[in-house]
Design a protein around this nucleic acid. Structure first.
Length: 694
DNA sequence: GAGCACTGC
């Protein structure tokens, strides 16, 4: 049994204040001041006191770094201050980027509300597959991915006068790439203003990144209008947030098993602490299910008694259906305390109201690119201090809260301050291609905010060269490279779409590529009768050639039966995912047609489709070694068939290609297709001569 | 033989 130490008063912690209304990133907004006029609410926000300072700094500096904690109101108010003071009146637009679609939607509608207009008028938004924009729009909310795409047609983003990049502390891949490109643009467009907005971040580091001009300003064009203006210089502005204090508790001794410790802590809270919901952070879906099961067993024993500590236990992770996810937002039955056991989805992506207690296991599952094996690994690593702070903050949004950390205080101070940015732990082939398409030739010396390991860049360049997207001097090829860059999918998938023209099967390949973009077409129940039934249901779609042809069968069947509600259910098909597949598919087909690749179908023939797959996935080939294991052709790394693959229980074919490799307990190949090695030699001779010499 | 954190174009 473990004990929690006395609450520790962390200085960096007490400053965290939750928001009262408008800076919420999900559509579930709790607003205790609903009765007040909008004008009054806006004035109550902490950032209101900084309004004039903000406008002055933006007048005099090209870059403004805005450090504002949750609840400062920066995401909703700053864009309005800009409009009110005349930015966006010269026919140009203000744009605000967010890492997530849901944040774009809720911010845009909140700001339109506050301004008394409807969406698509002065205030609009643009996300993939959805947009509300008109020629009246002066303020636009977008995902950072959308803004990156816009740069392909408008490299200097000339239609914008102010660009605000929000949630920079999350350091998503797109945010980092956007920042570096915006820095370049700003040099060419001195009148452009950039606002970099972040919760916690090393502001000085960011300031140094953005300050490229050390000399005094106005030495180039001495126009009086810009005399006060320091182009290329960055100012930092801090905005206080607002939030209730959260007491932090640490365990006195390290816990051997954080799943068990989580369960014990929930039980302790339920017995000893006043009412208030509990949020538990664990690393994966399996841990979540185990914890939920243990807590439900406990809850059942309690429910039969007349005690007060009755619980409603709910799981929250990305694999759940929409309906199951929505449950965590509903009020628990009266007299019950709601316990939500979640993965990292609850750290930033969704906000659950009513949380007073947080339990933090101290770990997170992260995708990590391994350049040696050229594969992704999904590894459980200790969280950063910033993450721990973010998780604890989830307890102080309604009233003072408590956070229980399942690690010691000493250990906390050994953690990294920040999680390494995504750009440093990702496969960069897509990002590199995108940069090339935007005219960045020298990737190795490109000015990233946090440079990725050189080997990651080298691996990306090698793959692009193998796909003939770039030539031996590293330049984007015309038309192959240019075309691949146009597609909103991984380069290898884009290459397959383009090649489908040669094999006259673009219809089928579009279905396959679309299906590979979504998480899971099937539900995989983990226990009981359901898991067996699901397995039997999957067999209906099984193709002996492998997973990709199976996906094609699923997509084809869904277009026929998908509208029947029982059909998806009885076949354990993820309806949400399949609907998205069809939307993606039609986007891909439209893009193909725009590039002059006509719609064509193999009319039931399988071989052209298989050849097309082989012609693009040849870099991902594995052969059956006499030892009985698969090995990569590239580096002789041992690979295993993922248990979700349709080929898992089958006799092993001598040659396969795979969509990706993910390392969990072992290196697992996913999205596997059986191929004929002669095709590989024929279709990718530049790559495969040496292979058959084995 | 045994298993997928979370986003985004």
């Amino acid at each position: 049994m473990f004990k929690f130490a006395k609450p520790t008063d962390l200085p960096d912690w007490k400053e965290e204040r939750p928001d009262f209304n408008s800076d919420e990133v999900t559509s579930f907004i709790f607003n205790p001041h609903r009765s007040q006029s909008i004008e009054n609410q806006r004035k109550r926000l902490p950032i209101f006191e900084n309004r004039d300072q903000f406008l002055y700094l933006l007048e005099t500096h090209q870059f403004l770094i805005l450090i504002g904690e949750t609840g400062s109101g920066k995401s909703t108010q700053v864009p309005q201050y800009l409009l009110e003071s005349g930015w966006g009146c010269d026919g140009k637009t203000i744009v605000v980027t967010q890492p997530r679609r849901v944040a774009v939607l809720s911010l845009a509608s909140r700001v339109a509300d506050e301004m008394g207009t409807s969406l698509g008028q002065t205030v609009g938004y643009s996300i993939r597959f959805d947009e509300q924009i008109s020629n009246k729009t002066r303020l636009k909310f977008v995902t950072d991915g959308v803004l990156l795409r816009e740069m392909l047609t408008d490299p200097l983003l000339k239609k914008y006068c102010v660009i605000m990049v929000d949630e920079v502390h999350e350091r998503s891949l797109n945010t980092d790439i956007l920042l570096s490109l915006l820095k370049k643009i700003a040099k060419k467009r001195p009148e452009l203003r950039l606002i970099i907005s972040s919760a916690t971040l090393d502001a000085e580091e960011l300031k140094n990144y953005f300050t490229w001009k050390t000399k005094s300003a106005n030495d180039e064009n001495g126009s009086t209008e810009v005399q006060q203006y320091k182009k290329g210089e960055a100012a930092i502005m801090n905005v206080i947030g607002r939030c209730y204090p959260v007491d932090i508790f640490y365990v006195q001794d390290p816990v051997p098993d954080y799943v068990k410790a989580s369960v014990d802590t929930v039980i302790k809270i339920s017995i000893h602490e006043p009412p208030g919901d509990v949020l538990v952070f664990l690393t994966g879906h399996e841990e979540v299910e185990t914890t939920v099961r243990l807590l439900k067993e406990y809850a059942n024993t309690v429910a039969e008694s007349s005690r007060k500590d009755k619980l409603q236990v709910l799981a929250m992770h990305g694999g759940l259906s929409n309906e199951d996810q929505l449950q965590v937002f509903q009020r628990p039955p009266s007299g019950r305390r709601k316990i939500i056991v979640a993965t990292n989805i609850a750290e930033a992506s969704i906000t659950i109201p009513g949380i007073v207690y947080v339990i933090d296991c101290g770990f997170v599952k992260l995708k990590w690119f391994n350049a040696d094996t050229q594969t992704d690994a999904l590894v459980v690593v200790p969280i950063s201090q910033a993450s721990a702070q973010q998780r604890a903050g989830r307890a102080g949004r309604m009233r003072p809260g408590k956070a229980y950390r399942l690690f010691t205080e000493d250990y906390f101070y050994t953690l990294n301050r920040f999680t390494p940015p995504e750009v440093q732990r990702s496969n960069l082939s897509s990002a590199v291609l995108q940069l090339k398409a935007l005219g960045v030739d020298d990737i190795i010396h490109f000015d990233f905010p946090s440079p990725p390991p050189a080997q990651h860049l080298a691996v990306a360049l090698e793959l692009l060269f193998a796909l003939k997207a770039i030539d031996s001097s590293g330049r984007l090829t015309d038309p192959t490279g240019l075309r691949i860059a146009e597609f909103p999918v991984e380069p290898i998938m884009a290459k397959m779409l383009i090649s489908s023209n040669d094999f006259k099967c673009s219809a089928e390949i579009a279905s396959i590529v679309a299906a590979m973009q979504v998480q899971a077409l099937f539900y995989y129940p983990t226990r009981g009768q359901d898991s067996i039934k699901a397995r039997i249901a999957r067999r209906k779609f099984e193709a002996c050639e492998g997973d990709l042809i199976t996906y094609l069968n699923v997509v084809t069947a869904f277009t026929k039966h998908g509208d029947c509600p029982r059909w998806c259910q009885s076949n354990y098909i993820n309806k949400k995912a399949l609907k998205r597949v069809l939307v993606l598919r039609s986007q891909l087909i439209k893009l193909l047609q725009r590039l002059g690749i006509p719609y064509s179908s193999a009319e039931g023939e399988i071989e052209p489709i298989l050849r097309c797959i082989a012609s693009s996935f040849f870099t991902n080939t594995a052969y059956l070694h006499p030892c009985g294991e698969y090995k990569t052709v590239l580096a002789d790394v041992v690979l295993h068939v993922h248990p979700h693959s349709i080929l898992y229980a089958e006799e092993k074919a001598p040659w396969v290609v795979f969509g990706e490799v993910l390392q969990t307990t072992q290196l697992f190949m996913r999205d596997i297709t059986i191929v004929d090695p002669l095709w590989l030699e024929e279709l990718a001779p530049h790559y495969f001569q040496k292979v058959t010499e084995r």
